[in-house]
Each structure stands twice: as structure tokens, then as C-alpha cells.
């Protein structure tokens, strides 16, 4: 962490990085050039890849866990015959960091009152959440093959019938409001748990997101962290083609939120940003995580596998590529 801050100071002197204006603001914001440079240095060599994390099958390096999760997501969607592959792959790193390195939760006791909550508002990324929950020990790995099956517990979009899922989602734009309710309840109970919400960048089109953003800031709900999966695509095309969402950071800042920009595949930066959120008081935080849709399999990156399902050959090729990484 100290190293990162040291690097940040150098980057600031080189004018590649900006600091927020709030006195509580401990995060950093990269300029376009700064992002480019950090991407170059981080993408190929994830700093935390060797970090050991606890899974149901014992400790394994984060890098290995992420590969396993991606592999499971690919298998699940290929097996189910439908599902949002690109949007699931873009969020794997962030969900894994939350569940394996940040959140307080207990797979043995999913209803533990003091657990941190996660609302996957971009519910179409459910396969990524299921893979993470299964690895964490909420339900057997074999159950992953039942995605979208009649009578199964792994619905097309998150459902509380699945152990570990904190809220039913699927209809875009509604997760943040639910998180506001959970965070308000925690404040009433003087409880210290936190509420994480993952929303898509296209989801920012939904007006309710902004209603909830206003409410969270009005009540100073600093126990909420919104993570925007900025993978730059929605179903029909790029967000900027369909209906521009930029400047995202300025919008949230104007709504009274503490705003952090990170590379969503830079594990160190995501962890650091989550820590900054924990030390931000009096206002909610949003992390705008720049991600790559379809991350991890070169030919799936972008919007090609937004909804399409890999055939047997593509699945084999994707799994081979993951193995080589």
C-alpha cells in the first residue's frame, strides 16, 4: 500500500494523476495518460496474483482463483445455452476481491445479521456471482451446472433462493434503492456492516439510480459503496453510442458522492479504493471501475459475447487461453 501511495506521488508530480478536492478524499484519479501507463504496467502482471485467498477447497493464489472463476462462468453459460457472458467476465475480479479479500460474510451462516451485503444490481452478471458464492462455500460446485434450469436454485438473474444472495435483482436500476434501505437500517441499528452495490454503466440510464443517489447522499450513508462496472458496452453497442453516460465521475460528484476511479482489473487499485471508501465519512462512495467486457478471453472481449453463447470449439479455445495465462 505504501508503495502504491509512493508511486502515486511520483505520478502526481508528473501530472499523470489528480487528487479529489474533498478533505476526506484519499483516493486518486488517473488522467487518460496515467490510466494508459498503469494499464500497461498492471494488466500483464497483476500485483496480487500470488496473494493466497481462502476458498471452499482451501487456500489458493488469487490469480488461480480468478482463472477458476472465469472457467466456471464459461462452462455455466455454455451449458445453460444462454446468459450474459461478457458482462459476467468483466465483473469477476471485483466480485472475487469483495468476497475473498474485503467483505465480512459467513458461507456457513448466510443470514448472519452483521454480514456485509452485496446487491448485484446488474443482475444479468449472475453467473459471476454464482461462481464466486460457490467458491466461497455457499453451495456445492456441482450445482453450478444447473444455471437457468427449471426447479434449480441458480436463476437467470439473482434470487434469494440461492444461498448467499442478499437481494433479488434483474430489473435494472433498482439495486441502489434497496442498498439505501439496507444501509439506513444498519444506521438505525448502529451496526457497522457495509453495503456494496454493483451496477452496470448502461444501467445509469435508469432514472431510479439517480433518485437513490440523491437519497443516499442526503442521508450521508457512508456505509454504501457503489461499484460501477464501466465496461463501456450495453446490449446494442457502446454506452456512448446508445445514450452517453459520461462524464460519470462529475455526475456522481455533483450528486454529493465520494468518487474514485480505478482499473477494475487492477486488484491492488480496487482494494485500495475499497479501503478509501471505508475511511470516507459522511457521504457515500462510488468506485468507477474501468473494466473490459469479456475480460480474460481475448476473442470474447468487447461486445461480441454480450449475449451470445460460445459453441464447443469456442469454449475449448477460451479455456485453453485461460490456461495459458
Amino acid at each position: 500500500m505504501e508503495d502504491l501511495r509512493g508511486h502515486a506521488r511520483v505520478l502526481k508530480e508528473l501530472k499523470l494523476i489528480d487528487y479529489g478536492e474533498s478533505p476526506q478524499f484519499k483516493g486518486v484519479e488517473l488522467t487518460e495518460l496515467g490510466k494508459f501507463i498503469t494499464n500497461l504496467t498492471i494488466e500483464d502482471e497483476p500485483i496480487l496474483a500470488g496473494e493466497m485467498v481462502q476458498t471452499r477447497s482451501g487456500a489458493k493464489p488469487l490469480g488461480q482463483l480468478l482463472k477458476d472463476l472465469r472457467r466456471q462462468v464459461l462452462h455455466m453459460i455454455a451449458n445453460a445455452g444462454s446468459g450474459h457472458l461478457g458482462a459476467s467476465l468483466s465483473i469477476v475480479d471485483i466480485l472475487a476481491i469483495l468476497y475473498f479479500m474485503k467483505m465480512q460474510h459467513d458461507p456457513i451462516n448466510p443470514d448472519w445479521e452483521e454480514r456485509d451485503r452485496l446487491v448485484l444490481s446488474k443482475g444479468h452478471a449472475a453467473p459471476a456471482l454464482y461462481a464466486v458464492l460457490s467458491e466461497a462455500g455457499y453451495f456445492p460446485k456441482e450445482e453450478l451446472t444447473t444455471l437457468r434450469e427449471l426447479g434449480g436454485r441458480l436463476h437467470g438473474h439473482p434470487d434469494t433462493v440461492t444461498p448467499g444472495v442478499d437481494a433479488k435483482t434483474g430489473s435494472l436500476g433498482q439495486g441502489l434503492s434497496m442498498a439505501v434501505g439496507m444501509a439506513y437500517a444498519a444506521k438505525l441499528d448502529k451496526a457497522s456492516h457495509r453495503v456494496y452495490v454493483v451496477i452496470g454503466d448502461g444501467e445509469l440510464h435508469e432514472g431510479q439510480v439517480w433518485e437513490a443517489a440523491m437519497t443516499a447522499a442526503h442521508y450521508g450513508l457512508d456505509n454504501i459503496v457503489t461499484i460501477i462496472d464501466r465496461n463501456k458496452y450495453q446490449l446494442t453497442g457502446t454506452t456512448e453510442e446508445v445514450k452517453g453516460v459520461e462524464p460519470i465521475a462529475d455526475k456522481w460528484r455533483a450528486f454529493g458522492w465520494n468518487v474514485l476511479n480505478v482499473n477494475g482489473h487492477d486488484h491492488f487499485a480496487v482494494l485500495d479504493a475499497l479501503e478509501v471508501c471505508e475511511h470516507t465519512h459522511g457521504k457515500p462512495s462510488v468506485i468507477i471501475a474501468a473494466t473490459t467486457k469479456g475480460k480474460g478471453v481475448s476473442f470474447m472481449e468487447g461486445n461480441k459475447f454480450s449475449r451470445s453463447v460460445p459453441n464447443a470449439a469456442q469454449l475449448k479455445q477460451a479455456l485453453e487461453e485461460l490456461d495459458r495465462r
Binding site: A167, Q174, S177, A185, G207, E211, M214, T215
Partner: peptide
């Protein structure tokens, strides 16, 4: 303290109510 003025935003209000309920209120 147990009254939440959500303002003129009924959709948000219903979502917040759902979240409160999920937390036992």
C-alpha cells in the same frame, strides 16, 4: 429517526422499503 423523507421519488421509496425489509425492518 424512524421516518424517511424520500422526497418526490416513489420508485426509490419502494426500493428503499424493500431494502429495509431485507434488513428486518
Amino acid at each position: 429517526e424512524r421516518f424517511i423523507e424520500v422526497g418526490i421519488s416513489e420508485q426509490d421509496m419502494i426500493g428503499i422499503a424493500a431494502g429495509l425489509s431485507l434488513s428486518g425492518k
